[in-house]
């Protein structure tokens, strides 16, 4: 009878029969609503699974191919799970060239770029977001313009410059051109601008120096954005093929993607299984980094999207 009281709102008019009819109608409605919500959830999961499949299939295919023998890669219809996984492919891929060196070069270059970028974009973005100085608008405009210049357009002058400074075939030569990032400055500036002025004023009253405000308050508050940018940057430079190819003439500073590309040339025939094993070696570090920073990335997008 409790439901009846609720529906009628205190007036003692409803009889017991009317009351039970009412509560029947209510329960039926509730059941329908529940069924709909369950259905929606199922549909949602199905759609998400489909999406996952679209993105995961190439990876699964890569993994599968990397464990096959060469004839097996050509079978039609294709087989997803090879009969006897050939782990040797990985060793073969690794041994086609100085992979340890490639690997080290990749880490030094992608990591070096990342560290330098952090050192340059954080202060720049903070200045653009928080200070009005003479020419700040103009300077920011220049930063934005650099976003629109494709690297294909500038690689030749950069090559000549690096050559003049004797930086070709060095790690530094591959790092320096990317020491800052217009995209990073833009992204971070937007994030900094969302932080309330009062927080900075409070810190000033707390006698915090400017660098301390940046390090202790601003940067922790934009961590999700920073992690996302770091990931973008790291992946882009880890996977970069064009730039290291153009800027190197020997093996000293060559990176993993160049090494992988060379696998293809080894036998004259495309050794897909070895190639895929090499690719897997290439993407594994990125996948690991991504899994570690997943939460921050999602946070960054939610934060930027909702606000």
């Amino acid at each position: 009878m409790k439901t009846v009281d609720n529906t009628i709102g205190g007036s003692p008019i409803g009889t017991a029969a009317a009351g039970s009819r009412l509560s029947h109608a209510r329960t039926r409605k509730a059941t329908i609503r529940q069924a709909i919500s369950v259905l929606l959830r199922v549909l949602n999961i199905a759609a998400l699974l489909l999406l996952v499949l679209v993105f995961a299939l190439p990876f699964i295919w890569m993994l599968s191919t990397s464990l096959k023998t060469l004839p097996e890669t050509m079978i039609f219809p294709p087989r997803w799970i090879p009969d006897n996984p050939v782990w040797q492919n990985y060793a073969d891929a690794w041994n086609t060239g100085p992979f340890l060196k490639y690997f080290r070069n990749s880490i030094i270059i992608a990591g070096g770029i990342l560290i330098l970028q952090m050192l340059t974009i954080i202060p720049a973005a903070y200045a653009f977001a928080r200070y009005k100085f003479v020419g700040s608008g103009f300077l920011f405009g220049i930063v934005m313009v650099t976003l629109m210049i494709p690297s294909q357009l500038i690689f030749l002058p950069v090559y000549l410059e690096l050559s003049a400074f004797k930086l070709l075939n060095t790690h530094l030569g591959l790092i320096l051109p990317f020491a800052s990032s217009a995209f990073g400055i833009f992204l971070l500036r937007q994030a900094f601008m969302q932080i309330s002025d009062e927080l900075i004023e409070a810190a000033r009253l707390d006698q915090a120096k400017e660098w301390k405000i940046i390090v202790r308050i601003m940067v922790p508050l934009v961590k999700p954005v920073l992690v996302t940018f770091a990931l973008f940057s790291f992946i882009a430079h880890w996977n970069d093929y064009f730039w290291p190819l153009v800027m190197t003439t020997n093996e000293t500073a060559r990176t993993l993607p160049l090494g992988i590309a060379k696998i293809r040339e080894v036998e004259g025939v495309a050794t897909w299984n070895i190639l895929m094993a090499g690719n897997l070696i290439l993407v594994t570090p990125i996948l690991i980094v991504f899994f570690l920073s997943q939460r921050q990335i999602i946070k960054a997008f939610v934060y930027n999207g909702v606000k």
């Binding site: 309330s196 009062e198 927080l199 409070a202 810190a203 000033r204 009253l205 707390d206 508050l221």
Partner: peptide
């Protein structure tokens, strides 16, 4: 004198606590 050295403490309307 910069704000930090005026020996003044302030409570803000929205508190301005450091969220991190």
């Amino acid at each position: 004198t910069p704000p930090g050295l005026r020996d003044v403490a302030m409570v803000f309307q929205n508190y301005a606590l450091y969220p991190n």
